[in-house]
């Protein structure tokens, strides 16, 4: 069959860059593809400007004698401490221990959160059974679990990993359950029109539909994992960045405390960045304004 020439869209020109100097001419009915403009404001460097400026001001105020820098050491001293820790291998060993705990806790918490969130989100009956209890457990402060976990699992790694897993579990559980119960009825109906079985519906419609919310929940869980690892390493650890914090406090070395905090920030950011990079190919279809915000 040949279609009327006036209505065919074949051969529509490729999408134009929105930051092109001339006003782009788009084919009728063709939406432009948003290509992020490469301006100075969107580069990674701009993110370092504020902390760099603050560090510079603090360094200058110590060097000019406005502060003695004893309780709040200047960036140069913190940098030197970090360098020393790196040289002796302490930094790698502490960071490695922390990362291992976060990875193990994150894996367990995310898996449990995903499974129970899926059960709760997919079945109203299960939600009514499980959700009140889990919401009550969520309200318990993390530190309240510590004595119990030490009694149950001992002072070594298991109790620390369990505490981190608890921290990761709740945001993942909530994210998955909310996303599943909020999947658009209209696209589920399309699946029904094509007579998808229950399993096919989950694989072809529900899972892709909740993917963005699941990834956001994982990122939130990972962030909480890094918060909980500090609490975990406060409870009798002999290595880890949390231990470095306690050590710095006991030795009266604020530079070590700040070095550990910076190491936490860098590790957290790198872990989150890794999660974003790994999951980005799964979300290329999203119609979002992240590049414009």
């Amino acid at each position: 069959m040949t279609l009327p020439a006036s209505t065919t869209q074949a051969g529509a020109p490729p999408a134009e860059r929105l930051d092109a100097p001339a006003s782009p001419t788009l084919a009728a009915g063709t939406m432009p593809v948003l290509v992020p403009a490469r301006r100075w404001g969107t580069g990674g460097i701009v993110g370092f400007m504020l902390p760099f400026a603050l560090a510079l001001v603090w360094e200058a105020s110590v060097r000019l004698g406005f502060s003695n820098g004893r309780l709040m050491p200047p960036p140069s001293r913190i940098g030197a401490t970090l360098w020393d820790l790196a040289q002796t291998g302490e930094l790698a060993s502490h960071a490695g221990a922390t990362l291992w705990r976060v990875a193990a806790g994150f894996g367990l918490g995310a898996a449990a959160g995903t499974v129970l969130g899926a059960v709760s989100g997919a079945s109203p009956v299960m939600r009514r059974i499980m959700d009140p209890t889990l919401q009550a457990l969520r309200a318990i402060p993390s530190i309240a679990w510590v004595p119990l976990f030490i009694l149950w699992l001992g002072i070594f790694e298991a109790s620390k990993v369990a505490l981190i897993a608890v921290g990761v579990f709740f945001p993942v559980y909530l994210g998955v359950a909310a996303a599943l119960s909020g999947v658009d009825r209209k696209i589920i109906e399309v699946g029904r029109v094509f007579r998808l079985s229950r399993l096919q519906m989950i694989r072809r419609v529900t899972l892709p539909a909740i993917l963005p919310a699941w990834i956001t929940a994982l990122r939130t869980g990972l962030g909480l994992g890094f918060m909980f690892v500090v609490a975990a390493e406060f409870m009798g650890a002999s290595e880890g960045l949390g231990y470095l914090l306690v050590d710095g406090q006991q030795l009266g070395r604020p530079d070590r405390i700040l070095a550990a905090i910076i190491a936490f920030a860098v590790l957290g950011k790198l872990a989150d960045g890794l999660l974003v990079v790994v999951t980005r190919p799964l979300l290329t279809w999203q119609d979002v304004g992240r590049d414009r915000l």
Binding site: T7, Q9, A10, G11, T284, W285, D287
Partner: peptide, 11 residues
């Protein structure tokens, strides 16, 4: 009339 658009996303 959508030949050549198959690789695109709905958005």
């Amino acid at each position: 009339g959508l030949s050549g658009h198959g690789h695109r996303w709905p958005r």
